[in-house]
Simulated scan of single mutants.
Amino acid sequence: MIRAATPDDAEGIAAIYNDAVANTTAIWNEITVDAANRVDWMAARMAGGFPVLVAEADGQVAGYASYGPWRAFDGYRLTVEHSVYVAAGFRGRGLARALMQALIARARAADLHVMVAAIEAENRPSITLHESLGFANTHTMRHVGQKFGRWLDLTFMELHLDDRPTPM
Rank of each mutant, 00 (worst) to 15 (best):
A88Y: 07
G59T: 01
P69M: 14
A14G: 08
A26Y: 08
M157L: 08
N37W: 13
R38D: 03
D58G: 09
A98C: 13
A107L: 03
T140I: 07
E158M: 09
T25M: 01
T79D: 07
M141S: 14
V84H: 04
L152Y: 05
I127S: 10
Y76R: 09
R150Y: 06
R93F: 01
A72N: 15
G134F: 02
Q101G: 14
Y17M: 01
N37Q: 12
S126H: 05
P69K: 15
A87K: 03
A107E: 04
M100L: 11
A96Q: 02
Q146C: 15
L129G: 06
L78Y: 15
R3P: 11
L154D: 12
S132C: 08
Y85F: 04
Q60I: 12
S126R: 07
F73E: 14
N18T: 04
A22Q: 15
N18Y: 00
T140G: 07
E11D: 11
L78M: 15
G89F: 00
A121H: 07
E158R: 14
D34P: 04
G49N: 06
V116G: 11
H113D: 02
V86W: 00
A87V: 04
L53Q: 02
D34S: 02
I2D: 03
I31W: 14
A102K: 11
M100D: 08
D111Q: 13
R3I: 05
V39E: 05
F90H: 10
D9S: 06
D9C: 01
D58P: 09
A117T: 10
S132V: 09
A10Q: 08
H143T: 15
R164V: 08
P69N: 14
I16S: 04
Y17R: 06
A88K: 10
S83E: 10
D153E: 05
L133P: 15
R108A: 01
N23P: 11
V80N: 09
A55V: 00
I119D: 10
T128Y: 12
M168A: 12
A102I: 03
V52I: 08
G94D: 07
A5T: 01
L159D: 05
V80E: 07
